[in-house]
Amino acid sequence: MIDWHNMSPQEIERRARNIAPGEWAVEMQKPISTLLGSCVAVCMYDPAVGVGGMNHFMLPNMRKREGTVDVDSLLSGDYAMEVLLNGILGRGGARHRIKAKAFGGGTIISGIAASGIGKRNADFAREWLDREGIELIASDFLGACSRKLLFVPATGDAYCRRMTTTMATAQEVAKAEQAYAESLRRPPPKSNVELF
């Protein structure tokens, strides 16, 4: 058994599985990390069995546009929250024991600040957890900073490092968020599977 409590955050980060915008992960042994700008990451875990996970979403929910396929909903906050919760339950977690920690919603890019997306993401995370009866025991939302987040599902420990927004940091976060936004605009690939 790994003693995560006596390990430095740097060592935890070295061992972590990184998730990008639009992704989620459920783990028992491996830590999870991500870099946040206006996005929000929610960490949920069951302390009794040591299972937990993290998601990383850019928008609270997606609305189906007339005449389009609703694949965007698979990458939104409402989907990310449901799939994370179900992943934890599927690995032995119990709903009544699940706790949450949530982070992000920063304002690091002026165009995104004007849209208020960071605040909408943070509000969505709080409201969803409250509606589902999952206790939010720690959070760090909003502000003019990006965040590096580490989460250890086995212990429920989360490490959040606020980073002053530099040009390099803003570009790295903006690049990841832009790639995610572009993926939402692309039509799904055509399947070459023929059903008979």
Rank of each mutant, 00 (worst) to 15 (best):
73 S>H: 09
38 S>H: 06
39 C>D: 06
133 G>Q: 14
77 G>R: 00
98 I>V: 09
121 N>S: 02
160 C>F: 11
141 F>R: 02
157 D>I: 09
39 C>L: 05
167 M>L: 10
65 R>F: 13
83 V>D: 06
110 S>C: 05
47 P>G: 12
47 P>F: 12
125 A>W: 02
95 R>P: 02
119 K>Y: 13
110 S>V: 09
131 R>W: 14
76 S>A: 04
70 D>M: 04
69 V>R: 13
137 I>K: 14
55 N>F: 13
30 K>I: 12
61 N>K: 14
133 G>P: 11
125 A>F: 00
68 T>Y: 14
49 V>D: 13
116 G>K: 00
75 L>I: 13
92 G>E: 14
154 A>F: 05
117 I>N: 00
123 D>I: 02
85 L>A: 00
157 D>N: 08
66 E>R: 06
110 S>R: 10
131 R>C: 07
78 D>L: 01
103 F>C: 02
27 E>W: 07
108 I>G: 02
118 G>C: 05
90 G>C: 03
45 Y>C: 01
45 Y>V: 09
120 R>S: 04
45 Y>S: 06
111 G>A: 06
40 V>Y: 03
128 W>Q: 06
91 R>K: 12
55 N>I: 10
127 E>W: 15
64 K>G: 03
126 R>I: 06
126 R>M: 04
115 S>C: 03
45 Y>I: 05
77 G>A: 00
89 L>Q: 08
40 V>D: 03
53 G>M: 10
102 A>E: 01
102 A>V: 01
160 C>L: 08
97 R>S: 06
31 P>V: 09
97 R>K: 11
78 D>H: 08
101 K>N: 04
67 G>H: 14
107 T>D: 05
133 G>A: 15
141 F>W: 06
132 E>W: 15
79 Y>Q: 11
43 C>R: 07
62 M>I: 14
102 A>Q: 00
106 G>Y: 04
137 I>G: 10
45 Y>K: 05
114 A>M: 00
43 C>Q: 08
84 L>S: 02
124 F>K: 01
46 D>M: 05
57 F>P: 02
91 R>I: 08
102 A>Y: 02
37 G>M: 09
43 C>D: 08
96 H>T: 15
114 A>K: 00
162 R>S: 07
109 I>S: 02
37 G>N: 11
53 G>K: 12
47 P>S: 10
153 P>Y: 12
146 S>W: 14
57 F>A: 01
42 V>S: 03
161 R>D: 09
66 E>C: 01
